[in-house]
Amino acid sequence: MKKTICFAGLLSETNLGDIVIIESTEGLYKKSLAGKGNFEFKRLNLQFGQVSFLNKVVRKLKRLATEKLKLDGNRLEIEMLKKHYRSQLKEAELVVLVGGGLIKYKYQGVFLYLIALIETAEELGIPVVINAAGVEGYSETDPRCQLLKMSLNKDIVKSITTRDDLETLSKKYMHQDSKIHIDKVADPAVYSDEIYKTNKQESDTYGIGLVRGGIFLDNERQLTPEEVAIFYADLISEVESRGLKYQMFTNGSSSDNELLPLIKNKLGRNHLELIVPKQDDELVNVISTFTTVIAARLHANIISYSLNIPSIGLVWNDKLALFGDDIGYPERFFEYNQLDAKKIVDAAVLANEQGYEQGQWNKYKSTAKSNIDVIVNKWIANEL
């Protein structure tokens, strides 16, 4: 008899880093489960991206009615999400939240997805594993954060691992008497080289990853879209002045293209070539063609790492700096007030010469896989 695992993630995201997370997590689970039984793998979209137009209209009307009557809008949204999730989880025997920036409450409404999914799994008696989640902030006074905390501590949640802030997860989100398995692991996308069967290609081209202009301000870092565009223009000028080859790219999100006209204007150009991947495998392949990457998107850096390609991170969120610390190269990650084009190109050239210390590279990567092996073995033995 087949046992069904449901992988839950942000399937509608145009930022292809989220799709790489899903593919990598599922791929690592499949490798760990190989030869251990008969399994079926399904996916659940945490978002409403695949819901019919009629249902979207109904949801909108319910929201408007809730606002007018001054009801609890969060609870209404959670109940609508639960209805969406319940129909997809009926046959599941394990739910794996695949990771990404999940444990957060300030924007994007992701905390509602987690609460709804955990409550639904609890009602159906399906154990929940949260894999390599990003932890982004905590508040004792924000009701959204406290709702999320309550759900994370439910008995149906068997394991929570984080790719970054273990201290905030273990000391603030989790009850001190909690028996839930907690650990710090690498993001599953560190195995994207194996999952996508892609290797680093011989190249002397530097990759420059664009990001949307407002991302720094949205994360309480005082750098305006125009200042971000000026930085990119300065960066391109600096790379060109040194005679280095470069190629601009994005992680696929259309919003990451928005600064291109402003960058061209700052440089006095009519054209700048920009690669915009349409599929996740294309993103991995594009990054594989670079010798070193300079990028703000976390998964441009993580995919580079998986391919043994050095990267320089532009920090708009603490998760990038934490990744730099974890891999042993904090000096390769620059905060918003350190975005000096000359210093960043200096760092990129040095990183290109140094690469990664291979013992640490292998050790850090292995944490993503070893934790999944532990979860799989416990689940098969009915000890999760």
Score class of each variant (00 low, 15 high):
residue 359 G to R: 14
residue 378 K to D: 14
residue 264 K to L: 10
residue 59 R to V: 00
residue 204 D to C: 08
residue 210 L to N: 07
residue 239 V to H: 06
residue 255 S to R: 15
residue 360 Q to G: 08
residue 205 T to C: 12
residue 53 F to E: 15
residue 67 E to L: 13
residue 362 N to V: 07
residue 323 F to W: 13
residue 158 K to T: 02
residue 364 Y to T: 05
residue 234 D to A: 12
residue 179 K to D: 07
residue 29 Y to N: 01
residue 207 G to A: 04
residue 2 K to Y: 12
residue 29 Y to W: 15
residue 67 E to R: 14
residue 128 V to R: 00
residue 219 N to T: 10
residue 154 K to I: 07
residue 379 W to K: 07
residue 174 M to I: 10
residue 246 Y to S: 04
residue 53 F to D: 14
residue 13 E to I: 09
residue 119 E to Q: 14
residue 230 I to S: 11
residue 195 I to C: 02
residue 23 E to V: 03
residue 155 D to R: 14
residue 137 G to M: 03
residue 357 E to T: 06
residue 209 G to D: 04
residue 135 V to C: 05
residue 40 E to I: 11
residue 9 G to I: 04
residue 71 L to M: 13
residue 341 A to P: 08
residue 49 G to H: 08
residue 272 L to T: 07
residue 343 K to A: 14
residue 163 R to Y: 06
residue 130 I to V: 15
residue 250 T to D: 08
residue 236 I to C: 04
residue 98 V to G: 02
residue 89 L to Q: 01
residue 322 L to H: 08
residue 134 G to Y: 01
residue 340 D to V: 10
residue 321 A to K: 15
residue 249 F to Q: 02
residue 111 F to P: 03
residue 111 F to Y: 15
residue 177 D to R: 09
residue 248 M to S: 09
residue 316 W to Y: 15
residue 306 S to P: 10
residue 383 E to H: 10
residue 373 D to K: 09
residue 162 T to C: 12
residue 87 S to D: 12
residue 358 Q to D: 11
residue 378 K to E: 14
residue 80 M to F: 10
residue 280 D to A: 15
residue 153 N to T: 08
residue 26 E to I: 09
residue 192 S to P: 02
residue 34 A to Y: 10
residue 144 R to I: 10
residue 298 L to M: 15
residue 78 I to T: 08
residue 268 G to L: 09
residue 37 G to F: 11
residue 354 Q to I: 13
residue 356 Y to I: 05
residue 84 H to C: 06
residue 364 Y to L: 12
residue 351 A to M: 05
residue 51 V to Y: 02
residue 50 Q to E: 15
residue 54 L to C: 09
residue 337 N to V: 09
residue 41 F to V: 06
residue 161 T to M: 03
residue 182 I to S: 06
residue 161 T to E: 02
residue 2 K to C: 07
residue 346 D to R: 02
residue 80 M to D: 10
residue 230 I to W: 05
residue 16 L to E: 00
residue 345 V to P: 00
residue 359 G to N: 15
residue 150 M to Q: 15
residue 275 I to R: 12
residue 324 G to V: 11
residue 262 L to G: 05
residue 146 Q to V: 11
residue 40 E to L: 12
residue 93 E to M: 06
residue 213 G to Y: 01
residue 368 A to S: 13
residue 91 E to P: 01
residue 141 T to I: 12
residue 175 H to V: 05
residue 196 Y to S: 00
residue 99 G to N: 09
residue 341 A to R: 05
residue 217 L to T: 11
residue 228 V to T: 13
residue 56 K to R: 15
residue 25 T to I: 06
residue 131 N to F: 03
residue 86 R to K: 15
residue 158 K to N: 03
residue 243 G to T: 12
residue 89 L to R: 01
residue 316 W to Q: 03
residue 140 E to V: 04
residue 267 L to M: 14
residue 49 G to Y: 07
residue 12 S to L: 03
residue 80 M to T: 09
residue 20 V to H: 00
residue 88 Q to C: 12
residue 261 P to E: 06
residue 356 Y to K: 07
residue 274 L to G: 03
residue 251 N to V: 10
residue 294 I to P: 01
residue 111 F to A: 08
residue 84 H to G: 03
residue 43 R to I: 05
residue 73 G to N: 13
residue 363 K to T: 12
residue 213 G to M: 05
residue 114 L to C: 09
